[in-house]
Design a protein around this nucleic acid. Structure first.
Lengths: 258, 258
DNA sequence: GCAAAGGAGGCAACTAATCGACACCTCGGC
DNA sequence: GCCGAGGTGTCGATTAGTTGCCTCCTTTGC
């Protein structure tokens, strides 16, 4: 629960929320079809005036990379709109095993699982990069829903989208082997962050093996072994903080869609 | 997609939706805390007049046990309100592996993943018991949301609840072993459907081993073996169509919460 | 410059879980 | 009565994935 002080010296990049850019909403173990079909971001449904109104109602908060925004088991009230940055939402089981539900980007909201306060967080949120969020309490949310109809619609679509993401994640975890899931994730990363590089695709991700493991629901070691195996097969090459995919087709075959 | 003809002779029990009963909303691999904390059913938020209005807008459909309500890959439009009965929502991977997302009871809605039409079903729905559903198209939904505010709130809460269910399922599948998941499910079944019986709890479920396997994301054989193992340990006794739990505490230990 | 921390990578032992196959049992229909 | 379908019990082979531990390499901070 250590959030960074607001008087900090270095301030993250300015609000893309008001600018209205539309990057991918989230990153998780799922075909990106579900993501590209996502609804417009919550804020894009609003007029400039409405946006200002919403932002005015909330309390701005800066969260530095690695700091917790909210923690599993603590009481919650309302949601956090992500103004800039990226929040990783994850769950830790009693056994210590951890699963990343998703990385949510600017324009979406995190918190929950309830909208209107009461209850405890059943997962945690940590800043994956320096981020700025706007906290809207349950009480404020109720008022905004009544006052700004477009905000209500945006919330409904956001919730529908989250439902899609989580059910897709459950589908993956319930029916695919770890190997298939890793292939899946690599394809997704290549599609989303890949840069073409003379026949190959370079994923310049900042993800560690442990990060990848948490996304596919496996151990760090297994990811290391699998990546090594793929490297031996000539499918890809893992360099530090960079994965170069040579044979995307092979990954598709591993995933089961030829 | 074989729905039963409306002129069928045997008609399922009459609508508990209008009666306003409140059974568990759903059955799935999750601690029942998430379920008991669920919001009031969609219809309980409405006045009798509003209920009638909603029911009038939709098209009633009878689905017999084992018949598909909707199928993965087919285009969809709107949602199905469950008036009576129980619908199993499941996903089949290309490999043939199947995972049950949830059994939804009367009072909830299924379909999706989108509310307002467009797109394809990414999962299937089959009647677990003879059921009556009301189909509301995307167009109708939009109109109802605008006309009946309580309906909009009910939808939001329903969506939030589904999000909770699916994320909890992902948490389970991502961090627990099959054994732990089975223990979890058994505890949940005992809590929900269990009948006290001289120190033991009898679960008179109609679930086959395959049904249980689909819920925990495992194979039928593994469930058979695990149940046998538990029986040898004296934790429970599996009779046909009935499981008697002697040592609930042991299941809690297996699950990891002492 | 050094020390500490965290990540990458490797490896051996182990077990949880799958896969495929088959035999059996029970129930309902003809 | 026989037959077929669907559910259960079991076996052996195989693999997928975990656990625990250890080394090396970077990065960062002092």
């Amino acid at each position: 629960m250590q959030t960074a002080p607001l008087h900090a010296k270095t301030v993250p990049a300015a609000s893309p929320l008001l600018a209205g850019s539309n990057p991918a909403q989230a990153l998780l173990l799922t075909e990106n079809a579900a993501l590209t079909n996502g609804p417009p971001l919550l804020f894009q449904r609003l007029t400039a005036k409405e946006r200002e109104e919403v932002l005015r109602e909330g309390q701005k908060r800066v969260v530095y990379r690695g700091k917790m925004l909210f923690s599993q088991g603590t009481p919650h009230d309302g949601i956090f709109l992500i103004e800039s940055g990226r929040i990783r939402v994850f769950y830790i089981a009693p056994s210590g095993r951890e699963i990343t539900l998703a990385y949510w980007n600017a324009g979406n909201f995190v918190g929950g699982p309830e909208l209107f306060g009461q209850g405890q967080h059943v997962w945690s949120g940590v800043a994956a990069t320096n981020s700025v969020v706007v906290h809207l309490t349950g009480k404020t949310l109720r008022r905004l829903i009544a006052q700004v109809p477009a905000f209500a619609i945006g919330l409904i679509e956001g919730l529908t989208f989250k439902g899609k993401c989580y059910s897709a994640l459950a589908q993956m975890l319930g029916t695919r082997s770890v190997t298939e899931r890793l292939a899946h994730l690599l394809i997704h990363l290549a599609d989303t962050y890949g840069v073409k590089e003379e026949g190959a695709i370079a994923i310049g991700s900042a993800f560690t093996h442990a990060d990848l493991a948490h996304m596919v629901g496996a151990t760090r070691q297994w990811v290391t072994i699998s990546l090594k195996r793929l490297q031996e097969q000539g499918v890809l090459k893992a360099e530090k903080a960079k994965i170069v995919v040579y044979d995307l087709e092979a990954l598709h075959v591993m995933r089961g869609d030829r």
